[in-house]
Structures are given as structure tokens and as C-alpha cells.
Simulated scan of single mutants.
Amino acid sequence: MLSALSPALAAVDHLPWAALALASLLLWWPRARIASLALLAIAGVAGFALGQLDIRALIALALLALAGWMVGAARAKATRIGGHVLFVVVALALGFHVAPGFHNPLAIAPTRITADAIEFSMYLNLDKPLVGFWLVLVWAGVQRERPLADWLKAALPACLAVTLVCLGLACALGQIAWAPKWPSWGLLWALNNLLLVTLAEEALFRGYLQEGLSRHWRERRWGDAAAIAVAALAFGLIHLAGGWAWALLAGVAGAGYGLAYRRGGLQAAMLTHFGLNLVHFTTFTYPVLA
């Protein structure tokens, strides 16, 4: 009886994540913005109802709302700076899953996708995606209203170049090996990676950090290149927990994502990021060799 009920129970547990993912999908079309906000609300209500959120999660939500008010163009400069500092602190807490009140459900238990890989697990995170939603919905600096053709023109060559360079370098460094596969839960991994993981990471490092630095240095000839480099370096540093080689690979990939962002906006950076991850996931050791 319990085994018969388990798929239905799993589907219910996935409801907050599914609402978040659908909200992310609709986020890019202005006419669907209200529907996206409604889905965000549904994700929150379902999260509280299922125990994936508790009352402490309201602290992070309230701080994000406060930061959104503080960074408004009508505020004094000191208030805007304080708002950005507050957002960065909350974003890091959410991104590293240390903000209280979030109980992200485990979707993929620790497993070795291939025999020679380290164990991989995946949670349906409700905290980290909030960073991406805040940036797209609240901070006007993110390049988001770009035509679909711009996304593809920028993402396709950037994805090809980043994939060849990063995966080739990863093989040379002994991080991965040829291992084609498609697990039964591959679609869940792909949707989560495309709609939520890349949204949070690219919105923060490209849409927020790179774009902000680029605007700050817009009078400098080297401004755009320096902004891409600094954002890529920061992206590499947050991957240091995986070792120096992993941080180096993330930094190189970040430079490619930055070029895609510069030419095609946030969506192009997300597509480039997902394209590399997808090729890595399906054709090489994932995450890395043990």
C-alpha cells in the first residue's frame, strides 16, 4: 500500500518546486508576469503547508522585501548602498542554504551515477531560486527584455566554445572521463538546472555583479572586460569547496557566460550555462571522478 502511494506523495512534495519552476519559465514574458507572481505565491503557500518552509523563512522574505525598497531609485544614496549590502548578505545565506526556515526536500538520494564518480544528490531548493527572482523582478539593472533571437545568437557560439574549452580542460586535469548516460531522473535534473539553478547563479553573477561593474566602469575602455573577469573570478571562488581545479574550471566557464550575457542578456547566459552542464551531465563523469 505504501509503495503504491509513494509516487503520489512524491508528486505532492514536488508541488512547491514545480510552481517555482513554472514561475521561472513565465518570468521572461511581461504579459505573463502576473501569472509568474501568482505561481510564486502558490509555491510559498504549498511550501508552508508541506513543512518545507517554516515561520523563520519569513525573515529572509522580509529582508528581501526591505532590500527591494531600499535600492529604489528614489532613495538616498546611503540607503541604496545599504540595500545592496543587505541583498548580498541575504543572497549568500540563501545560496549557501544557511538561511533558517527552509527545509528543501531531497529529490535524488546520494548515488554514484557512474561507478568511477563521486556521489551525487539533489535537493529541490526553495531558498536559492529566490535570489534570481528578486533580481529579475526587483532590480532593474538585469538585462532581461531581449529578443529570443539575441538569446540564441549569443548562447550558441558561447556554449560551443565554453563546452569545448572547459570539458577539454577538465579531462586534461583528470576531473572527468567519457561516460555517456541518461538516468531515469535526468529530466528532473535538467528542468531544475535550466529553470532554477542557472536563474539564481546567472542573475547574481552576471545580471547583478557583472552588469553593476560594467555600468560603474562604463567610461573606461577596459570596463566591460574587467566586469566579466571580476564576475568570473567570483564565480570560480564560490566553487573552491570542490578544489582548485573545479574553481579554475568554474572561472573559465564564468568568463564564457559573461560574454554570452554581454551579447544576449541574462537568458543567453542561462542557456550557455545550462548547455555546458547538460553536455557534462550526459556524456562525461558527473559530477567528477572519485
Rank of each mutant, 00 (worst) to 15 (best):
M1L: 13
M1A: 15
S3C: 07
S3L: 14
S3R: 14
L5Y: 02
S6K: 13
A11F: 12
D13I: 09
D13M: 13
L15P: 00
P16G: 05
A19V: 04
A21H: 03
L25K: 00
L26N: 01
P30R: 10
S36T: 04
V45C: 07
L50R: 05
D54F: 01
D54H: 01
D54N: 12
A60H: 03
L64W: 01
G68H: 03
G72Y: 02
G72T: 10
R80I: 14
G82V: 05
V85P: 07
L86N: 06
A91I: 08
L92D: 08
L92C: 12
A93K: 01
G95L: 11
F96R: 06
H97N: 14
N104S: 07
P105V: 04
P105S: 04
P105I: 08
P110S: 06
T111V: 15
R112N: 12
I113P: 08
D116I: 10
P129G: 03
F133P: 12
V138L: 03
E145W: 11
A155D: 08
P157I: 09
L160S: 10
A161M: 13
T163M: 06
L164F: 13
L164P: 00
C166M: 10
A170P: 00
L173R: 02
G174M: 09
Q175W: 11
I176M: 06
K181W: 08
K181D: 10
P183D: 06
W185F: 14
G186V: 09
L187I: 15
L187N: 03
N193M: 13
N193W: 07
L194W: 12
L196I: 04
V197E: 08
A200D: 07
A200N: 08
A203M: 08
L204M: 14
L204V: 04
L204K: 01
R206L: 10
Q210S: 05
E211A: 12
S214Q: 14
R221Q: 14
W222V: 13
A225V: 14
A227T: 05
V230Q: 02
A232P: 00
L233W: 11
L240Q: 03
A245R: 13
A247I: 08
L248G: 02
L248H: 02
L248Q: 02
G251H: 06
A253T: 06
A255Q: 01
G258Y: 01
G258A: 08
G264F: 04
G265L: 05
Q267D: 01
M270C: 10
T272M: 07
H273S: 06
H273T: 05
H280G: 03
F281L: 00
T282M: 14
T283P: 00
V288P: 00
L289R: 07
